Amino acid sequence: MTPQLVSEQTPPALSTKPHYAILDGLRGIAALLVVAFHLCEPLATSHFDQMLNHGYLAVDFFFLLSGFVIGYAYDDRWGRMSVREFFKRRLVRLQPLVVLGMAIGALCFYFQDSPVWPGISEVPVWKTLLVMVIGFTLLPVPISLDVRGWQEMHPLNGPGWSLFYEYVANILYALGVRKFSNTALAVLVALSGAALIHLAVTSPAGDVIGGWSLTPEQLRVGFTRMMYPFFAGLLLSRVVVLAKVKRAFWWSGLLLTLVLVCPRIGTSETVWLNGLYDSLSIVVLFPLIVWVGASGQLTSTGATRLCKFFGDISYPIYITHFPLVLTYTGWVSTHKPTWQQALPVATLTFVSALVLAYLSLKFYDEPVRRWLKQKLG
Results as ranks from 00 to 15, higher is better:
103 A>Q: 01
87 F>A: 05
248 A>E: 05
315 Y>M: 06
10 T>L: 15
11 P>K: 05
107 L>R: 01
89 R>L: 08
109 F>G: 04
187 V>S: 11
175 L>R: 08
292 V>T: 11
56 Y>G: 08
76 D>H: 10
270 T>D: 10
261 V>Q: 02
75 D>E: 13
75 D>F: 04
67 G>Q: 05
373 K>P: 00
106 A>Q: 03
82 S>Y: 05
193 G>K: 02
207 D>F: 01
249 F>Q: 03
263 P>Y: 04
359 L>C: 14
137 T>H: 09
239 V>G: 01
163 L>V: 15
103 A>R: 00
126 W>G: 06
25 G>L: 07
284 V>W: 10
133 V>Q: 05
58 A>H: 05
83 V>S: 15
32 L>P: 00
81 M>H: 05
336 K>W: 05
371 W>D: 00
337 P>E: 12
253 G>C: 07
124 P>Q: 10
281 S>D: 01
360 S>K: 00
334 T>Y: 07
73 A>E: 01
352 S>T: 13
132 M>L: 14
35 V>I: 15
113 D>P: 06
176 G>P: 06
78 W>T: 05
112 Q>G: 09
118 P>R: 12
291 W>D: 06
91 L>S: 06
82 S>H: 08
277 Y>R: 06
23 L>G: 02
273 L>Q: 15
227 M>A: 15
309 F>R: 08
261 V>K: 02
191 L>V: 15
33 L>F: 09
93 R>I: 02
361 L>I: 01
222 G>F: 02
139 L>Y: 07
132 M>F: 10
154 H>N: 11
